[in-house]
Design a protein around this nucleic acid. Sequence first.
DNA 1: TGAAATGTTGGGGCG
DNA 2: ACGCCCCAACATTTC
Length: 471
Amino acid sequence: MSLAIVWFRRDLRLSDNPALADALARHRYVLPVYIHAPGEDGVWAAGAASNWWLHHALDDLSQQLDARLLVRRGPVLDTLLALIADSGAEAVYWNRLYEPAAIERDTAIKRRLRAEGIDAGSHNAALLFEPWEVSTRQERPYRVFTPFWKELVARGLPSTRQALPQLTGRLIGAEHLRALDPEPLDSLGLLPRIRWDDGIAGTWEPTRAGAEARLDEFLASGLRHYQSGRDLPAKDRVSRLSPYLHFGQLGPRELVAACRAGGGGADAYLRELGWREFAHHLLYHFPHTSDEPLDERFAAFPWRAGDAQLAAWQTGRTGVPLVDAGMRQLWQTGWMHNRVRMIVASFLTKNLLLPWQAGARWFWDTLIDADLANNTLGWQWTAGCGADAAPYFRVFNPVLQGERFDANGDYVRRWVPELARLPDKWVQRPWEASAVVLEEAGVRLGQDYPHPLVDLKASRERALAAWGRVK
DNA sequence: TGAAATGTTGGGGCG
DNA sequence: ACGCCCCAACATTTC
């Protein structure tokens, strides 16, 4: 009886999964496989937070598959060939990844499998449109978001609400699975050895059920007021769906369908999904940009070196409350509100003049939703060296941003508790508070909370001068 | 998906 | 009543 391997990667769902659907359509039995091969991710090996999520997502997927997910470890090609030999599979199907290293590896795997007479096929589960399907009238990749998004909308955003596939009797038997040397999930070492994950575990439900619950909550409470609500980091009015999208526990087509059914306010949110598409479009067409600026004029930009300042930023000890609040939210929960991401990124690159790559690396290591395309776009946008980037003169003032979007200081107080007793007027800028005010709030600057790492006005002017010289 | 500097306007205090 | 100044409020320009 014919058997197909479905090679799961970051498409950890059963619904709207074209590789799985293809396998079910063409073959009698299906062998779902996950192969752990961290070395094949190149220099962008997944960080600890990402691995934590992956562990639980795989555990959850395995449960949905009636414990028939075969986990293996090793080089992917060798592992697949061994599995084909041991199981008698005639085909391997998977859903595409779009990072440069993954494309290179998967292309080689497809070629080799076909050379061996195996039916190898890849599908799109992760994006609304393939990066190579969309181009400007000059047949070039888009480099500006708005026309890119208009084109996608004009084509019609694909959406689907598929029922779960009927798997009963289609998965290979448990005894057959055991003969294929399954690796216990725990042995992959994805979970932390020392338990630093309490904050993350208390914040997230990294399962398909968690994704659906989070989506329902967002549709009910956030989507309608997304346009304005998304800017308030203390409120829970953003989707928080990014990690589910990254690991494919939710597909973008499913999300479009849910938004359409969810009523008003969806356009502003769908546009954010458009930025995700744009990020993948850019990384596909400009594969070096995860490490190098897209705008060549920035190749020789005079970034500073500052290990102590970088460490202060990473650990939320810059002395600028909103920046520190964001960095601590990231460290404790593996996630940061998007407006705050822009603010801390602006602070690192512009006020501290530290290279965006250092920030990108830290986000990569700590974010639960770390995604190479999105991370690259976001950091290059902030640094002004990417596609459709922020103008060089756009420097966020974290004090003003705090007063505008965290007016009563709820966000700062939550993540920087040592400032909690400061009055609203000073909570975003304790260094300007009088000695009496500080004393009454129990804050000794330089002891309980640091003096600001840099003067905002002077460092802003330094940044403007440096960016102004890029010509 | 900025911020700060500069310009303009209009109301009110005051001699 | 009038002109002058101050300054908040808003608009425009510049970085």
